[in-house]
């Protein structure tokens, strides 16, 4: 029972990690929070759902298309919401993406209705029994896909020219620009990568719970953000670790205390971390320049 909760927590945590990586990458290059990132994840989920139900595509193809679709959405968000506000005060892009998040959520609701959609799948397909704990096919899918994506991301970040540019901008944008890095291009690419991961998370979660609904991005986005804060806001491994911790803690709370507290836990963690150690586990400290 306990082990099963841990496994459930790990699966949920991997999802938070995938979304959280997007927050961390974007915060890394821009120092800003992308409030509509949860909606990008929701859009990914819907793309996956439509591909599977309307076009009868296999899961892997739907997943790839969702990643691509979410990446495009992320790119557009950067182009239309962040780029025009590069020199505006910090709150401008925050409020702007907050508005975008509300618009996307409600537009989706208008188009597809607010009810939860599910795939015509047989439920309860237990794949393995693992010391008495059930491990479902969907969980295996989550673990393998997220692990694959994270390894792929590490490859991009540390082995490619683009990754080098992303890390350079995160260190010092002006210096990177002076060294000939095309800032706008790299930021757009960062959005695309982060959003693609979010889109993948959307499809995976939709399959896991077999539930797709327009408001699914709100909570997931907030929780993934909590995970990212826990990990230090700009750190990719931090976001992963934060996601896993949050997923596990949440499931244990729901199982052993009350399911009503499942969502509460995340926000309490969020406020505690911000209060006690705003720089998170791996984060750099914040210091004001005079």
């Amino acid at each position: 029972m306990f082990l099963e909760q841990i496994l459930n927590g790990l699966a949920q945590g991997s999802i938070y990690a995938l979304i959280g990586i997007g927050f961390a990458l974007i915060f890394g290059v821009l120092g800003l929070v992308h409030f509509a990132h949860g909606e990008v994840y929701m859009i990914g989920a819907f793309i996956g759902f439509i591909m599977i139900t309307a076009f009868h595509l296999p899961v892997w193809a739907a997943l790839l298309l969702a990643i691509a679709g979410a990446a495009i959405v992320g790119f557009l968000v950067e182009l239309l919401n962040f780029r025009p506000l590069r020199k505006a005060p910090e709150y401008a892009s925050m409020i702007c993406t907050l508005g975008l998040s509300v618009v996307l959520q409600n537009a989706t609701m208008l188009i597809w209705g607010s009810d939860t959609k599910s795939l015509p799948l047989s439920s309860e397909n237990v794949a393995f029994s693992f010391f008495g704990a059930k491990l479902s096919m969907e969980q295996i899918l989550i673990f393998t896909v997220s692990l694959g994506l994270m390894v792929g991301l590490q490859y991009i970040l540390y082995r490619s020219k683009l990754g080098k540019a992303i890390r350079a901008i995160a260190q010092n944008r002006e210096a990177a620009a002076l060294m000939g890095v095309n800032i706008n291009q790299v930021i757009a690419a960062t959005f695309a990568i982060g959003s693609g991961l979010g889109g993948a998370a959307g499809v995976l979660v939709g399959l896991y719970y077999n539930a797709f609904y327009p408001t699914m991005g709100f909570m997931a986005g907030l929780k993934a953000f909590t995970a990212t804060v826990l990990g230090g806001l700009t750190s990719v491994p931090g976001a992963v670790l934060g996601g896993i911790i949050l997923g596990v803690v949440e499931n244990i709370t729901a199982a052993y205390i009350s399911s009503g507290f499942r969502d509460l836990v995340a926000f309490v963690i969020l406020i505690l971390v911000l209060f006690i150690r705003p720089s998170g586990i791996f984060g750099r400290g914040i210091q004001e320049k005079v």
């Binding site: 401008a92 409020i95 702007c96 907050l98 508005g99 998040s101 618009v103 208008l110």
Partner: peptide, 11 residues
Amino acid sequence: IVFGGILMLTM
């Protein structure tokens, strides 16, 4: 949608 749009557009 109106609220969200207002937030976006004013910004």
